[in-house]
């Protein structure tokens, strides 16, 4: 019974789609659904959070997000640079895809 149903589903899905197969780059993102991911964004911003949804533009909804903004301060007098980071937490966040630079599966460090 179940075998027939799954065979039918597989047949309907077409020859190239098996559920865990990685064929195109976005499949890597699909496999990260419900996992914690790292997202690098324009403007020296980084996010770590659980991926709940995405689309082909890389619009995303993330949960339990931690955002890190890297700010470089230049001291005019001594001409030295200092880097500081600002962290904040957002429980549920929609991210517009046009700011996304890269999406990475959860790294052990994060």
């Amino acid at each position: 019974m179940t075998d027939v149903a799954s065979a039918n589903a597989a047949a309907a899905a077409g020859p190239t789609s098996s559920f865990s197969m990685v064929e195109e780059p976005l499949d890597l993102v699909r496999l990260s659904l419900d996992e914690r991911i790292y997202v690098k964004l324009r403007g020296d911003r980084e996010l770590r959070g659980r991926l709940h949804a995405y689309d082909q533009h890389l619009n995303m909804v993330l949960g339990e997000v931690e955002e890190t903004i890297t700010i470089v301060d230049v001291d005019e007098e001594s001409n030295t640079q200092s880097v500081r980071t600002v962290n904040r937490k957002v429980p549920m966040l929609f991210v517009r895809g046009d700011g996304v630079i890269l999406v990475s599966p959860p790294s052990r460090a994060s």
């Binding site: 709940h52 957002v90 549920m92 966040l93 929609f94 991210v95 517009r96």
Partner: peptide, 16 residues
Amino acid sequence: RYVQLSPPTVDTALLQ
């Protein structure tokens, strides 16, 4: 850039 949402209004299982 972002839209901050209120978590109870988001059905995460449905979204996934």
